[in-house]
Design a protein around this nucleic acid. Structure first.
Lengths: 217, 217
DNA sequence: CGTCTTTTCAAACAATTGTTTAAAACATAT
DNA sequence: ATATGTTTTAAACAATTGTTTGAAAAGACG
């Protein structure tokens, strides 16, 4: 049968996504996944082959379209910059990187958003390998465009500022909507659009460098 | 005997610290720790009681003095602000938070620095509980001083900007000196002081808000 | 020396891990 | 209906997990 097959696969994927996001890759057992999905343990290995391959499938399902959206927007910016002969717009570059991560939440990917946020710092070799492979094109394009947008800033500085942005984004996707951090918040959970805007503003000002009182150090 | 006991304990602590930092809490087995320390498996449970308590000891050893240093500096800033009746200096507040994390590296805490950086996003409940307990006073003091320094900025905005700084710091401590990221860097590993300065600049400009082209949104 | 406490160690504990097996259940096509 | 291929399942696999045991070793102290 066909419909049932994909149904089982999808249920395993959904359960794995949620559990990987909440408990981490190493903290999630195959039995926890299949139990939550309501299927037999062997079904996961039958459909995906291994826990590692299952993680890869979880990442590919969401991160591939997400990064394709990012690359599309980055390509537009690069083409426009080449066409007009002007520098790429920093804010546009940062928005191309940040906004798709939050738009994912509105498309049923809320769990995955937290998972991706944590994948940046996951110590597990498998997670790093899979995640880095999917992120490398983005990082390359980001570094290239940011360097073009900030020609007077040393490449190493641009690199680190980009890492700071990644860190801020990763933390945001991790704690937004996480009940564990509810107590820390000064106000009830704000709109996701508001937080996205705050992050983009933060990233833009930080990326452009010290501007209020003086020139670059 | 006394000297030998602390020697074994210290060796276990060091090994645990390095392995927790590199492989994560769940990714590190007691046998890996004791094997790396050159002691028997049972020694760890004898001296610390459990894996959880060992993790707690690892955190306490470094994070307690680190956070005490942070609190001391934050208290100074608060006292000075009260005495002079002026707002706390944003850069001073951020430096009090960021600099001790890097000074730790120069005192044999290089491994721990990465561990603390990752603890912010560790999904394991044990890690979160231990880490949050040690960080709470810092976060409270930081939020209070940042709010005082930016009275015109909504508290929720201050909260998120502070989270962005935490994310940037966590990522930096995680990847600085990490050979896994060597290939991504445009230049050979820069001075730690340089990176610290870049992060503080980034945090300060981001924390103060959009300044280059206009007023607050 | 002998006695008492602290520390170390090999071995075993039950529980859980990811994965495999082989049979059953099901679907589809001839 | 029979045959063929796909999917699901209970059960078992070996390996690893954190922790405990009980005896041996080491140290401290009279």
């Amino acid at each position: 049968m066909r419909a049932e097959q994909t149904d089982t696969k999808k249920q395993i994927l959904d359960a794995a996504e949620a559990l990987f996001a909440r408990e981490g890759y190493q903290g999630t057992s195959m039995r926890a996944i299949t139990g939550s999905a309501g299927v037999n343990v062997a079904a996961a290995n039958y459909h995906f082959g291994s826990k590692e391959a299952l993680l890869e499938a979880v990442f590919e399902r969401r991160l591939k379209p997400l990064n394709e959206a990012r690359l599309r927007r980055l390509k537009e910016i690069r083409d426009e910059a080449r066409r007009t002969g002007r520098r790429p717009d920093i804010r546009g570059v940062l928005r191309a990187f940040i906004e798709p991560a939050f738009e994912l939440r509105e498309r049923g990917g809320a769990e995955f958003s937290a998972l991706a946020g944590r994948a940046f710092t996951d110590p597990d070799g498998t997670v790093q390998r899979i995640f880095l492979r999917l992120m490398r094109p983005i990082s390359q394009s980001m570094m290239e465009l940011l360097a073009l947008a900030l020609p007077e800033v040393p490449k190493e500085t641009v690199f680190w500022r980009y890492q700071f942005v990644i860190g801020a984004l990763a933390r945001t996707t991790r704690i937004y909507g996480n009940p564990r951090f509810e107590a820390m918040r000064p106000a009830p959970e704000g709109d996701i659009k508001l937080v996205t805007g705050l992050l983009i503003d933060f990233a833009e000002t930080g990326m452009m460098g010290k501007s209020p009182e003086g020139a670059d150090a």
